[in-house]
């Protein structure tokens, strides 16, 4: 019996020597990954400096992502929520998960994002925060953009609760509406203009591979016309 115990401890010692375990290692909580990187995208680990981002890099809680001119980044959270970072945007992602409950937040520092948030469980939450506003999302799509004085939230599907931090006033922004939150504490809602709707839909689809097919057609009079097909693949 003693030999048996001795044998198993030897095996454990050998295993531990080959790959010494760090019993007290506390791994940083991962919240998602960069599933697509187009042109100039940078990633900053929590507490470290900015570095060029790579497709497939995981994002931990407190990490930042930044896009340059004409650049896009797509972030996938581990509950399959999708975030599309438009050009000249900067965000910090945070999140905690325990026992299957994943709570996450995106702090907008500049620029705009398109979002497609999966339906959240009863005790889960997705939040967009900025210096001016907080938007609580439970399963919607839309666009959130910030500037020096105003935050704009356009919702394409379902409803988002939008709150101004200064006055704590909040509104529910439904599909087809745009909420505007000002630094001075004002918050209002209006029906989305066609331009706002288009911007929101483009923000949700930014980063998909766009392709174009051009065909030259000849009419009966001998003239030619171009047929242009834009499609995504």
């Amino acid at each position: 019996m003693k030999h048996f115990f001795l044998g198993m401890f030897c095996a454990a010692t050998i295993g531990g020597w080959c790959s010494p375990p760090d019993l007290f290692a506390q791994t940083q909580q991962t919240v998602g990954l960069l599933s697509k990187v187009i042109l100039d995208v940078s990633h900053r680990e929590n507490g470290k400096s900015w570095a060029k981002a790579q497709r497939g890099e995981t994002l931990g809680s407190g990490d930042g992502v930044m896009t340059g001119d004409r650049s896009t980044a797509i972030i996938k959270f581990k509950d399959n929520t999708l975030l599309r970072l438009r050009e000249r945007s900067r965000v910090t992602v945070t999140g905690t998960s325990a026992s299957g409950v994943f709570t996450k937040a995106v702090n907008m520092e500049s620029g705009a994002i398109g979002f497609d948030v999966k339906k959240q469980e009863a005790n889960e939450e997705f939040r967009f925060t900025s210096p001016t506003s907080v938007a609580s999302v439970r399963g919607t799509g839309g666009r959130f953009a910030i500037s020096d004085s105003t935050d704009t939230l356009t919702v394409v599907e379902h409803v988002v609760n939008f709150m101004n931090k200064r006055t704590s006033r909040s509104l529910n922004v439904g599909a087809g509406f745009t909420g505007t939150s000002h630094r001075n504490g004002q918050i209002e809602i209006h029906a989305s203009t066609p331009a706002e709707k288009r911007a929101a839909e483009e923000a949700m689809k930014a980063g998909d591979l766009q392709k174009q097919l051009r065909m030259q057609l000849r009419n009966r009079k001998g003239g030619t016309q171009d047929l242009i097909l834009d499609f995504k693949e």
């Binding site: 791994t27 940083q28 909580q29 991962t30 990954l33 497709r55 497939g56 995981t58 581990k78 998960s97």
Partner: peptide, 14 residues
Amino acid sequence: AVFSDDIIVFIPSN
């Protein structure tokens, strides 16, 4: 594949 907390990533081209 790379195991990072509860996310696993594998890039075939790499």
